[in-house]
Amino acid sequence: MPDRESDRRLLHHARREALVVIIVFVLALLWVVGYCYLRGYTHTPDSWVVQHGLATPRTPESFQQILGFPDWVFYGIVVPWLVCTVTTLFFCLFGMADDDLGGESQEGGPDGH
């Protein structure tokens, strides 16, 4: 009989961690696709995003770069990537719980142990 208490703890932790992953995923998605669409795509002057002041039309003349990256790549991809990496580091150093995964089942594997 497996240890019910440790199984219960693992399930609880795993659910909490899965929730964190989903939240980070959604935030990253919104930041990256949203920012890059508004700042990195060439919009025509009459499109609604430009008329509502959300985006500016971009041309080779208005191009800027930061450390060799186009500005929108830097703020829309490199920075969130770094943030995600740091978040992941913190998450696995301090956020994730250590759990007993349970032993190998005695009844399960037909090839026996």
């Binding site: 497996p2 199984d7 693992l10 795993a14 995964l101 349970g102 190998e104 089942s105 594997g109 142990h113």
Partner: peptide
């Protein structure tokens, strides 16, 4: 974690 646990529960 969870898939590893589930696999161990049944020896999958």
């Amino acid at each position: 974690k969870r898939i590893n646990q589930a696999a161990r529960i049944a020896g999958s």
